Amino acid sequence: MQVLIFAKGALAAFWLLALLNLLYPMGEGWYLAVNLIAGGMLLALFRFAAACAAQR
């Protein structure tokens, strides 16, 4: 259970950093990497939601 609590916090912190980075880029090195990871996770989320909807 402790791992799930940590994972939720880590995921929330990642998304907060990604949103902050979109509004105020923290530097060229972080800007591209964080946006690519966030975009990949968002794409995976949409594909997962579409797959779940197709199974209904």
Score class of each variant (00 low, 15 high):
30 W>D: 02
18 A>R: 03
44 A>Q: 02
15 W>R: 04
10 A>N: 14
14 F>H: 06
12 A>K: 06
19 L>D: 01
27 G>H: 05
11 L>G: 06
54 A>G: 10
47 R>A: 07
44 A>S: 12
45 L>K: 08
32 L>P: 00
9 G>A: 13
20 L>V: 08
49 A>S: 08
55 Q>G: 09
46 F>Q: 09
14 F>N: 01
3 V>C: 07
14 F>G: 02
31 Y>Q: 12
9 G>C: 11
13 A>N: 05
39 G>P: 00
17 L>W: 15
43 L>C: 07
21 N>T: 00
22 L>V: 13
29 G>A: 13
14 F>Y: 15
50 A>R: 15
36 L>C: 03
26 M>R: 03
21 N>M: 02
19 L>S: 09
7 A>L: 14
56 R>H: 11
11 L>I: 15
9 G>Q: 13
48 F>S: 12
16 L>V: 14
43 L>M: 09
21 N>I: 00
54 A>W: 08
48 F>G: 04
16 L>F: 14
50 A>P: 01
55 Q>F: 11
21 N>A: 02
24 Y>E: 07
51 A>T: 03
10 A>I: 10
46 F>A: 13
55 Q>S: 13
17 L>R: 11
56 R>N: 10
7 A>C: 04
44 A>Y: 07
42 L>Q: 05
42 L>C: 05
40 G>K: 06
12 A>I: 15
51 A>V: 01
41 M>N: 07
34 V>E: 00
49 A>L: 14
25 P>A: 09
44 A>I: 06
7 A>M: 14
40 G>W: 01
37 I>F: 05
21 N>H: 05
36 L>E: 01
12 A>G: 13
42 L>W: 08
41 M>I: 09
46 F>P: 00
25 P>F: 03
38 A>L: 00
9 G>N: 11
45 L>T: 15
5 I>Q: 12
45 L>I: 12
24 Y>N: 01
41 M>Q: 02
32 L>M: 07
48 F>I: 07
43 L>R: 01
14 F>C: 03
40 G>V: 04
13 A>Y: 15
47 R>F: 07
23 L>S: 05
9 G>V: 11
43 L>H: 00
12 A>C: 10
40 G>F: 05
52 C>E: 09
42 L>K: 02
36 L>R: 04
40 G>T: 06
19 L>A: 12
39 G>F: 10
33 A>H: 02
33 A>C: 05
1 M>A: 12
24 Y>R: 03
16 L>N: 04
15 W>L: 06
17 L>N: 04
37 I>S: 01
22 L>N: 12
27 G>D: 10
20 L>M: 14
34 V>T: 04
11 L>M: 14
37 I>D: 00
35 N>A: 02
51 A>N: 07
17 L>G: 06
46 F>I: 10
35 N>G: 02
48 F>Y: 14
54 A>H: 15
6 F>I: 14
9 G>Y: 06
44 A>C: 07
40 G>N: 09
4 L>A: 13
